[in-house]
């Protein structure tokens, strides 16, 4: 590890990976919630056209890419809001147009053997400069701050747009904000995993987190942990295994997902054995339901025909305290 940290470009790469691993899943969870998992890829395609404009006009490609991705984000949101079926085709044309224009322009300017293009498509994290790092850091900090402060609002709008609108939340503004956050993430992640793999860092850690989390809040924390693990772990792995960094990061994220899937598949029957569902139970227990309430650790069971019923998800579980114990308790009381 010391040899890795001794290298300037590897230190930069690790920091860049940390920023992206932190920021991407925070934005991605709202995309997963809105079932727009692939939208980041589309924005990445358009961002390549932005890079091309930067190369052509000799401007900073990061800025032109950000502009292109932001314009794409707003356009996507507008098309989605109008809700036409033709919108889907319009998006496809925009995405492929973006990547095609990007490839043509960059090759024209740099020559067909350019490594520049590959760097944007598949990531070139080891070329991260100190200036890049400052930009990534500021953008990531902005993403973390905005998604933390507005977490509940973004959650409400992504979960139920209609109710949010009826209750007076600024739905359009929040959707445009999410589009902008996605665009910023795309541009930061562009240099780390590449435009073609961007969605992976936003989505895969969240897919894994959904397997283990029990609430939106914990899902967010798990996703960030998995994201940082995959991105930083991917940089380290690619250094020692001498593999392409962007691809390694994404493969590691998928490996984390696979392990978590497998783990929960193994754990589920084990948990189910400890957990007996009560008989079909149309009646809802509650204060005044006529069944005796029995405090049991952190919850309340209800004594129902000699069984203890505990609320679990949408049903009731049988809780294992034997009815005999209960009746003696009642007698002695």
């Amino acid at each position: 590890m010391a040899d890795l940290l001794a290298l300037d470009f590897m230190r930069n790469a690790l920091l860049a990976a940390l920023f992206v691993g932190l920021a991407a899943p925070l934005v991605g969870i709202f995309l997963v919630q809105r079932r727009l998992s692939l939208i980041g890829d589309g924005m990445g395609h358009v961002a390549l056209a932005g890079v091309a404009v930067g190369v052509l006009t000799d401007r900073e490609p990061l800025l032109t890419a950000l502009t292109a991705a932001l314009v794409a984000g707003v356009a996507i949101e507008m098309i989605r809001m109008r809700g036409r079926t033709s919108g889907d085709v319009a998006l496809a044309i925009m995405f492929y147009g973006g990547i095609a224009a990007g490839v043509v322009i960059i090759n024209k300017v740099d020559g067909s053997q350019t490594s520049n293009l590959t760097g944007y498509l598949f990531g070139a994290i080891t070329t991260t400069t100190r200036e890049d790092l400052v930009v990534f850091g500021v953008l990531s900090l902005a993403i973390v701050t905005v998604t933390t402060v507005l977490r509940q609002r973004l959650f409400a709008v992504a979960g139920d747009e209609e109710h949010s609108r009826a209750s007076g939340l600024p739905v359009t503004a929040l959707n445009l904000l999410l589009a902008a956050l996605t665009a910023v993430t795309v541009v930061v992640a562009m240099r780390v995993v590449g435009l073609l793999l961007i969605s992976a860092l936003m989505i895969v850690p969240n897919a894994a987190a959904q397997q283990v989390a029990r609430s939106f809040r914990t899902a967010t924390w798990w996703a960030v942990s998995f994201g940082v693990l995959a991105s930083v772990g991917g940089v380290v792995t690619s250094f020692y295994a001498d593999t392409a960094t962007g691809g390694t990061i994404v493969l590691l994220a998928i490996a984390v997902f696979a392990v978590v899937m497998l783990g929960s598949a193994v754990a589920r029957p084990l948990l189910a054995r400890r957990h007996r569902m009560a008989e079909r139970h149309p009646h809802e227990h509650g204060p005044g339901c006529g069944h005796e309430a029995v405090p049991h650790d952190d919850h309340v069971d209800y004594l129902h025909d000699g069984h203890l019923h505990a609320p679990h998800e949408g049903h009731y579980d049988e809780h294992a305290e034997t009815p005999d114990d209960r009746s003696t308790e009642q007698v002695t009381r």
């Binding site: 949010s164 209750s167 939106f216």
Partner: peptide
Amino acid sequence: GYVPQRHTLSGSVRSTVREVVATGRLP
């Protein structure tokens, strides 16, 4: 107060009863 028709509690991400109810306070 609006209680929508279709149950809009899609299962795309985990969210607890309390988390969903709490969004009603946001406005």
